[in-house]
Amino acid sequence: MAAGGEPVWIALPPGLLRMRRLMLVVWLGLLTLATALVPGLLAGPGWAAFAVLPSALTIWGWVLLERNWRSWRYAERADDLLISRGVLWRQETVVPYGRMQLVEVTSGPVERYFGLASVQLHTAAAATDATIPGLDPAEAERLRDRLTELGEARSAGL
């Protein structure tokens, strides 16, 4: 039983937000530059105003990424893991520990540079969409070990 019934929510560390914002600025910055330079040089300086669009997109994405990042949270309860995410399309997933078939820690090159790792839970159902991105590697490993341990203790199979 979870203490008091209310889950203890854990938010994601700020590293993920930093990484996503950097990616956003890099890619949309390049796009802004391209939309400013290409029409500006070919058709005249006035046409460089096209660059307003991607830069507006950058600002919008900047805000959006923070909201999305804030919405991600997870809670380890006594018998199951809760993952909640999404701003407009909210989704909350519950995975009982006994149903876990495999816990995976992944970390791509960019994620590694920012010191991030994601934990993914697999059950026998492919529709189970239980991923926690942007964790501190130490926390990701702790979570993996704990989930594996709990999963073994409560193993239930299909």
């Binding site: 519950v94 995975v95 299909l158």
Partner: peptide, 16 residues
């Protein structure tokens, strides 16, 4: 109930 692997709640903006 014994066959449930995971449970998800999904709510879109219009539904909210």
């Amino acid at each position: 109930h014994a066959k449930v692997q995971s449970v998800r709640l999904v709510q879109g903006p219009w539904q909210r």
